[in-house]
Design a binder for these strands. Structure first.
Lengths: 389, 389
DNA sequence: CGTAATAGTTCATCCGTACAACTAATGCGG
DNA sequence: CCGCATTAGTTGTACGGATGAACTATTACG
């Protein structure tokens, strides 16, 4: 996970090459349809000669693949289509959450190459044991894909808590009962591994689909996490702890929260609060709630929607982003949440007369943080392809 | 896998030069003590030969000045100290606010070269008239400094409202009674002028002093504005409307706000709310309040502090920044505000056990937005010195 | 006054991109 | 079937910019 730093360094000749190599790689990877060398030249503004040498390097280092030349309708020598190379360089996403742990391997085309998800109950677990288990599982996966000739560029570990990515430390993960852990050594992997917050990586998984360049991602579960995505990149804040929306004030006269304050968002829109409001037990599966909709559960969900709208309004007022993506348990509740969320947003967001605020469900499938983590590794490869040449 | 990034453009040879020119300029401008060419080479990692040619260009284009060589204690040829050139290239800061309009010219050393501030009452004013007046005043100032051989690089206009800097439009400024204005043409200046929110430019003025790389700036007046500074740069949000903290929820059961919602921060910590709480009229000067402290006014100020703390806690939870700078009328109230703000922050910020949150008064003097605007213009010069060579 | 030390400049060299001319491979019209 | 137009990709020369080494300039110190 990259953290913006202005510390620019002296630019030499090879800096040019690195930058242009990245530029060419991005052009190939971002394009919806395969580009030829000539197309890349036109898209980047580089000379055809330059593009050729750069593309040749990317092909040689197995990041880009040449497809058979397609002899399409028009005159001239047929173009060689360039595409991200499948099953060559891959990224590993890892996650420990309350009720499962898992690993997922993605290749540069975005395809899932291998994965293993294991249900479990890690509510008050031992970090060394759990991370050791995940490490073993991940090693097996890495061995597997390496046997198939792929090389794993790195890994990202998603954790549900306050993560300091720079220090590589998990400050606290209330729902796991973990605090002050350095998880990477406990995995025992011989790969570069970085850690990140679960909601933040899940947000990045959304970038696989059609989504605005900037949005807020809110993931509802037992806790409520959020991530700020700006210009298709995570905004982390000074320490990587941005997006802690779960304890935003909804009503100072509200119920006491486990954090010590009163009327936090989680007391209205957290999983347990919604289930309780619908007359269900705190461990009831989400399906039980959905069967009560519309009907007995509706009031509880709508109350959550209004609370969520209030917290999101603060968020939008402070950060100014026009799209909110709802993930986690909210995804399935969108039909019953959306109107209330939008109504409160319209009422409380100062800029609402000038902007169309949008609330949409998350598009990434289950265990989105695994996908997001793997994608983030590959984004790192793409942003410095010269390291692989 | 489609990953998009900021559309960077092809890098050529002259890109190298531009980047290194900026690097050298920044080294000279940001150093607390004058550097020699050799020092710059050491600081940037560039070769001495390269630095020499780049510095020569900066000197030739009057951005950098050579001081007389100082024959200090140690052996060797004495170094030529390099400093930002005074009174050569200058930036113009402009502002229209409720009770004054003004213009201020800063040179590259940060010194005020010329300024003119005119009190007035622009509560429900006509944009064309007021901006025409400001434009005339600014022209006179520009003529003056041009006669002294300085060249004005550009201007920034600060406005108290929702500004879209990209579109160059002021959406609305409630306290001026303006809405949907394109201010730049109305100034009638033959300079590149950009517009920005007043609090955001005032925040940038803080960068002149010793301040962390990232902080929140909150300016209290009739309305409450805020700005997010990250890595010494403004964070604007998608449309430039970040930092609208004035209408964050403090208590949904609170008094009705002019924005239509209930219990907004401004109803607790806005100028009128504080004055009313202290038993003063809404137009009473700030001095009247200060004479009541400590004493009769204290309860009102402390209530404002708690409300401010609550809103700032949301802010810090969402954005993750460790320092809060209080400007506007809060600057003078800091002694009576600080403890309550910090207490609420400690209570509600999830990361507070792991961070030292700091609340400090603004250091920039009066009309900080004028200074910040002029500085912003000069920052633009600094980030692309090649345009001046 | 000679030597060491530091600042700044000059020059040959290297590297990467651009431009232009080239080769390669196709469609099309006669 | 052949020549021509067209587009893709490659080769070779030129140019701009950074570099390191050698050079000059200017001081302190013994």
């Amino acid at each position: 996970m990259t953290i913006t730093s202005t510390a620019s360094t002296a630019a030499r000749q090879h800096t040019l090459r690195e930058r242009n190599l990245e530029l060419v790689a991005r052009a190939v990877f971002e394009s919806p349809s395969p580009l030829s060398r000539a197309d890349v030249a036109a898209a980047t503004g580089l000379a055809r000669a330059t593009v050729s040498t750069l593309v040749d390097q990317l092909v040689a280092s197995r990041l880009v693949q040449e497809l058979p030349a397609v002899t399409g309708g028009r005159a001239g020598r047929p173009a060689v289509p360039l595409v991200p190379a499948p099953r060559s360089v891959v990224g590993l996403g890892l996650e420990v959450n309350v009720d499962y742990l898992g690993a997922r391997v993605l290749d540069l085309t975005g395809a899932v190459v291998a994965e293993h998800v294991e249900p479990g109950a890690f509510h008050d677990s031992d970090p060394a044991t759990v991370l050791g288990r995940l490490g073993a599982l991940a090693s097996e996966l890495v061995r597997q894909v390496a046997d198939d000739g792929m090389s794993v560029a790195g890994a990202r570990l998603a954790l549900p808590g306050l993560v300091d990515p720079r220090a590589g430390r998990l400050a606290v993960a209330p729902n796991l009962g973990w605090s002050s852990v350095e998880p990477v050594p406990l995995l025992g992997l011989s790969l570069p591994v970085e850690i990140a917050n679960e909601a933040k990586l899940a947000a990045l998984a959304e970038l696989a689909g059609p989504v605005p360049r900037s949005f807020l991602y809110v993931s509802g579960d037992v806790g409520i996490g959020a991530a700020i995505v700006l210009d298709r990149a995570l905004f982390l804040g000074e320490r990587g702890w941005s997006g802690e929306i779960g304890h935003v004030v909804v009503d100072p006269a509200g119920p006491r929260c486990s954090c010590g304050a009163y009327g936090c968002l989680e007391e209205y829109a957290g999983k347990e609060a919604i289930l309780r409001g619908a007359g269900l037990g705190p461990d009831a599966p989400l399906g039980d709630l959905l069967t009560l909709l519309p009907g007995d559960g509706e009031a509880a969900v709508r109350a959550a929607g209004r609370a969520l709208g209030s917290a999101l309004a603060d968020f939008v007022n402070l950060v100014d982003v026009g799209t909110v993506v709802l993930g986690g348990l909210y995804t399935d509740l969108i039909p019953w949440l959306r109107d209330d969320v939008l109504a409160v947003l319209d009422e409380r967001v100062l800029a609402s007369p000038f902007v169309d605020l949008e609330v949409r469900p998350a598009a990434a499938g289950p265990h989105a943080a695994l996908t997001g983590g793997a994608r983030e590794v590959l984004r790192g490869v793409l942003s410095d392809p010269s390291a692989f040449v």
